[in-house]
Design a protein around this nucleic acid. Structure first.
Lengths: 156, 156
DNA sequence: TGAAAGCGCACTGAATCAGTGCTGATTCCC
DNA sequence: GGGAATCAGCACTGATTCAGTGCGCTTTCA
């Protein structure tokens, strides 16, 4: 699926919240009081982001998380890469499609190279969007929910 | 996962092959003789693409498939949209995250709007790449396989 | 010392994905 | 007319991934 996982989604929401509170320590509990997200999952995700050194953890009774860097120094691409691996679009490399099985000339993957180009472009797109961009965006009001995003459910 | 499914991959491979044989009718068997792809799955995918009117089917003993339009009039975006729905990146719209559950002001999804921007950009990227672009690309030779695509397997 | 917070491991149910079985319908060629 | 080749349609299975939770431990502060 060409879609982010819930974990990534929660991660981005949490990080955006941390970006708005930049400089201070914010607990998972506080994040979950602001958005309807499952607490344990968000905690799980923040732990991973901590291991990847995108956030810092502060244990103890007044603990929580804070960004490890400035919001504009953390890209969406880093977050996605941490939580679900770098976007690779196809699985050519893992399935060996491009290697072929017999003659080695005719049996090459015809789409690997151009798809690789798309992959790099997507990656650049994610890399140049930072947490600051997410935090700076005006919040979406419920009434603005467009039908655009719902095209997916309309498939076959 | 930010990744195309095998079905889409097979679909793109098959369509690229059809693009190279534009004007003639090509059977699933012939496609599978050129690439190490599971025959039944490719047939399944082509059937879907036929319903979406991206290809035309020709039944009978000398039957097969042919592109319904010129290769440069079929975009990768159309193919992806047909086989796995339009890329939506997040599931905000389906889970109602942006609606919130209580006060209706604080409880809005902070990332929906910027992610929507990314989604549109991704969509445009896929829309402006056509089958002709895929078919025109020089075939990848096995020795050129880069380590780039394998970053994914190195995660966590 | 107790409450609040994060840490770590492991588990479960649901959904999706990849691939296949089987039968029927259509067309061409001998 | 019959057989072979091809697509059409339905449905099923096993594997994988995903979302979410259980449970107990450690750390810090008041």
């Amino acid at each position: 699926m060409l879609q982010l996982t819930k974990r990534t989604e929660y991660g981005l929401i949490a990080l955006t919240h941390l970006a708005l509170r930049a400089g201070s320590v914010t607990s998972v509990r506080e994040i979950c009081e602001h958005y309807p997200v499952p607490r344990r999952l968000v905690a799980e995700v923040l732990k991973e982001l901590c291991h990847a050194q995108l956030v810092e953890s502060h244990r103890g009774s007044a603990g929580g998380y804070s960004l490890a860097r400035a919001p504009d120094a953390i890209s969406v691409g880093e977050v996605v890469g941490t939580l679900e691996g770098h976007p690779s679009l196809t699985s050519c490399s893992s399935m060996g499609l491009y290697v072929g099985h017999a003659c080695g000339v005719e049996h090459v993957c015809p789409i690997r190279s151009p798809i690789e180009t798309l992959r790099l472009e997507l990656w650049r797109m994610l890399a140049r969007t930072s947490l600051r961009d997410l935090a700076a965006h005006p919040k979406t009001v419920p009434s603005a929910a467009p039908a655009l995003l719902q095209q997916r459910s309309a498939r076959s």
